[in-house]
Design a binder for these strands. Structure first.
Length: 285
DNA sequence: CCTTAATCCTGGAAGC
DNA sequence: TGCTTCCAGGATTAAG
């Protein structure tokens, strides 16, 4: 499930492959994945992709006119199984006649680009979607302003002020994108393990040193995960179709019942906010 | 206002 | 082998 590190890798890939290209034609297969206007122009037909932004787990494809002025914007949320993939003209040509993924029922939209390549949004489980806006300002005003600060750049002071006013347990609060944007089930469990704090702690009772540790570890963890291409559990691939490698470095996620890498005791598994949660009772207090 | 629970959806794994 | 059941989970919405 794409969380911040995976989405950042998709962004980096798109920066190298689709930015600077102009969208010549859009083929929308499933109308209901688009929220807001779904006209060809709203889906950036005729626009040049000038920038790809990210806040938490969400991306923004920003279109510009011939002068480069930003004039349209599509917010993409990958949900659990969504992917954005660029295919080069040479790869498209090589596929001709062979087993073509053009019939893939999970590809919901395909953008045709000026270089002859394509960008597709594929999402089998359809928890993801597209939100169209007239401008990046509109996206910020109507959607991104409701999110907390990005997990890579949030400061201890801001995180403290957010955690301070909720009585929920720490894990549940950290999963809330209104508190901070970018963490999902994998990285919250990994973060709490490296920070040596229990997921069951009440969010508002964390002290200043603990918050500082949390933020320091969060930046380090997310940076390492980005460097490793993110985590692939089943579906995740980046814009070039490559899987991540960080799943091999998970210390707790998906390891309930196995031994703690730090103290060799059995890792506990509980369910919090309906999410499977793995932690070490000995190492995390 | 705060918190929790139900809902959406498909495919892979486990059980019989 | 083939069927059923369960599970994974982010964000939105409704309900408590």
């Amino acid at each position: 499930m794409p969380e911040l590190p995976e989405v950042e890798n998709v962004r980096l890939g798109l920066m190298g492959s689709v930015v600077g290209r102009t969208i010549t034609r859009v083929s929308l297969k499933r109308r209901d994945i688009v929220h807001g206007q779904a006209r060809p122009a709203s889906l950036l037909t005729g626009r040049t992709l000038t920038r790809i932004d990210r806040l938490g787990k969400q991306l923004a494809l920003i279109g510009g006119d011939e002068g480069g002025t930003p004039v349209g914007c599509i917010c993409v949320h990958l949900g659990m199984t969504g992917s954005l993939r660029y295919t080069s003209p040479s790869t498209l040509k090589a596929r001709e006649g062979g087993n073509n993924p053009a019939k893939d029922p999970h590809i919901h939209i395909r953008w045709h680009l000026s270089d002859g390549g394509t960008l597709i949004f594929r999402d089998p489980r359809r928890f993801g979607g597209l939100w169209t806006f007239d401008s990046i300002d509109e996206l910020h005003k109507r959607r991104w302003s409701y999110l907390g600060e990005d997990a890579l750049t949030i400061t201890p002071a801001v995180l403290h002020s957010k955690l301070d006013r909720t009585r929920r347990c720490l894990k549940t609060a950290l999963l809330d994108q209104h508190v901070l944007a970018g963490l999902g089930n994998i990285y919250v469990d990994e973060l709490l393990f490296t920070s040596r704090i229990s997921p069951l702690r009440q969010a508002c009772e964390l002290d200043r040193p603990e918050i500082q540790r949390l933020v320091r570890q969060m930046r380090a963890l997310l940076s390492r995960a980005i460097q490793s291409g993110g985590s692939t559990l089943r579906d995740y691939v980046d814009a070039d179709g490559q899987s991540g490698r960080f799943q091999n470095q998970h210390a707790v996620y998906g390891r309930g019942g196995q031994l703690c890498t730090r103290c060799d005791r059995v890792l506990s598994r509980v369910v919090l906010a309906g999410r499977s949660t793995v932690y070490c009772e000995n190492c995390q207090a």
